[in-house]
Design a protein around this nucleic acid. Structure first.
Lengths: 146, 146
DNA sequence: TTGCGTGCAAAGGTTTTGCATGGCA
DNA sequence: TGCCATGCAAAACCTTTGCACGCAA
């Protein structure tokens, strides 16, 4: 059933994603990189494989800005990540893994009080990290104030 | 400069948004509603006016899931969605607004203990709602395991 | 009357899909 | 050999843009 074949294209795509570590890449960028390397990969292949990797939990898909399309990022150690929350800074794109007992209770709370089972492999909290928050203070005008 | 005209279309669009309160609407849905009402409005008009409202701070634009397009929501005095979390069921697609003091503390915790300022307008927690959880029990088994 | 607003259709970009071919196992 | 994977191009999507006409003030 799950007959997955190993191909040059897939190896290269995954290798590139791993190599980029915590950088997030668009499908376009992945395809462009392959082309530069002299081993072009069709866009549909990129999209298809990227989606497959997301399904498998090896790669994460982000929607940082509309109109710009999605971003992908290799998900190091997907197993342990199932058990904690993730924060993504919309300023610098940094992904923060949060190991915190208090937050573990949040999932429990949602389950018991709201009947909702959170999937940490799919959930990302967006916002600003400390550095980007400070950068914003000053430039920021009346955005926070509703 | 501010030569803004009041037109039937604009009145209706804004009225509909206000009336929908905390529901998120896509541009498509707005246009569809107008059509049903017997007063169709061109899509470009919807998009243009929606964007204008966002600029003016009267309406908020969300990017819940790419590929699905953007969602708009009337922004009643900063009340609504900035202050609570959103849950999205990956089973049935339902969007759940959670008004809960306990969860409000979560944002505070993240800020104080992790130096991260969560943006609830961009953040959505993914998982399964009660109904879909029950459906899944017994059904598929090997989906979680990558 | 002035010039903003509207609507249609076409263009824009990203992602998906159909189908024949290519390649892994 | 049997299938899965690939790649091209076309289609599907959402959104923006161009342009002529309509309408508010």
């Amino acid at each position: 059933m799950a007959g997955e074949y190993k191909t040059r294209q897939r190896e290269q795509i995954l290798a590139f994603l791993m190599q980029c570590g915590d950088r997030h890449l668009s499908a376009e960028e992945v395809a462009a990189h392959m082309k530069e390397q002299g081993n072009p990969v069709g866009k549909s292949t990129v999209y298809r494989y990227l989606d497959k990797l997301v399904e498998q939990g090896l790669v994460r898909k982000y929607y940082l800005q509309a109109g710009q399309g999605a971003c992908y990022q290799y998900w190091e150690d997907g197993k342990s990540c199932r058990e904690h929350f993730h924060l993504k800074c919309t300023g610098c794109g940094k992904l923060i893994h949060v190991e915190c007992n208090y937050l573990d209770e949040v999932a429990l709370h949602l389950l018991e009080h709201h009947g909702f089972s959170v999937d940490n492999t799919k959930t990302v909290l967006y916002g600003f990290c400390k550095e980007c928050m400070e950068k914003r203070k000053g430039a920021d005008v009346c955005q926070e104030n509703g």
